[in-house]
């Protein structure tokens, strides 16, 4: 029996490898200095959906909300084998907190219509909140199973999942449709297939084109840019490489529930953690260096 999955993914700044250079003098984070990456646990969510399709048949649709640049991770998903990818992009969605984001994603999922399972990564590394999955599920009025470690069984309309509770595990069972959030240890995401990567490399969402055209034709007038964008759009469309791009109108979103207006939580203050640089003895990463260090620790009685 085939099942249709929808996976919510996010492009995030790589906070794991943040350095002092990424902090601005005023103490805020310079997002531009950080590489944008595929949120790690969202890759596990994509893998869980692809694995489900491998075992039972069906489709995998990937959605993301973000600026035009976020289409990068949609191409990545298509390279890994997703059937369909949709970018939700709209300036009016900017500054959405988790409640508004959950709402917008739920409206996009309702617009897609048919689904059996919605997968999300447990949490995104830029906020670590783990709130969007459950909040989206609530808006969809479907149950949620958080922290999937393994999909144990799927029979008819009943799914059985092993959850990672952090201090052990539990197995739960429930009906479809369901929202499932996936933890990083659930699986090993498959690599992109070279053939698919080549195929989808040139795919674009419409919002990416103006910037690319302007970069390629710096001297062109607005009218010329517009004409070139139009031409490229048609070429992409003919070749099946124009990715879907939806705005808040397309998904029938209530604007009062999106963006700043729809976000009850407001950032009041942000302080950076100052990275103090004090002296430490640098030990060379060699056998000799390590031996001397241990000798020193024995001498000062740190080690017995």
């Amino acid at each position: 029996m085939p099942y249709d999955s929808i996976v919510c993914v996010k492009q995030v700044p790589d906070t794991a490898n943040i350095t002092a250079e990424a902090m601005k003098a005023d103490g805020t984070v310079n997002r531009a200095a950080l590489p944008a990456i595929f949120n790690p646990e969202d890759l596990n969510a994509v893998e869980a959906a692809l694995d489900l399709r491998d075992r039972f048949g069906g489709t995998v649709t990937v959605i993301t909300m973000g600026p035009p640049k976020a289409a990068e991770i949609l191409r990545d998903c298509l390279g890994r084998g997703a059937d369909r990818a949709i970018l939700i992009t709209d300036r009016r969605a900017a500054a959405s907190d988790t409640l508004a984001t959950g709402y917008i994603l739920s409206q996009a999922i309702r617009t897609i219509g048919r689904y059996d399972v919605v997968f999300c990564g447990r949490q995104a590394i830029d906020g670590d909140t783990a709130q969007v999955g459950p909040q989206c599920a609530e808006k969809l009025e479907i149950p949620q199973i958080t922290y999937l470690e393994n999909l144990e069984a799927l029979q008819g309309r009943t799914i059985r999942v092993k959850r990672n509770t952090g201090h052990g595990w539990e197995i739960v069972e429930g009906p479809l449709p369901v929202m499932i959030t996936v933890v990083g240890t659930a699986n090993q995401p498959r690599p992109c297939a070279a053939k698919r990567v080549t195929r989808w490399k040139k795919a674009r969402v419409p919002a990416e084109l103006p910037g690319e055209v302007k970069a390629a034709m710096p001297a062109a007038s607005d009218a010329e840019v517009q004409a070139e964008v139009q031409r490229r759009t048609e070429v992409l469309q003919q070749r099946g490489l124009l990715l879907e791009q939806w705005d808040l109108d397309k998904i029938g979103a209530d604007l009062q529930r999106c963006g700043l207006a729809g976000s009850p939580t407001k950032v009041y203050r942000v302080q950076s953690i100052v990275l103090t640089k004090e002296g430490y003895s640098e030990i060379p990463a060699s056998e000799e260096g390590v031996r001397k260090l241990i000798q020193e620790l024995v001498v000062d009685r740190t080690l017995g």
Partner: peptide, 9 residues
Amino acid sequence: FGGNIIATI
């Protein structure tokens, strides 16, 4: 932000 900022909400 991975522990690099403290935010007050």
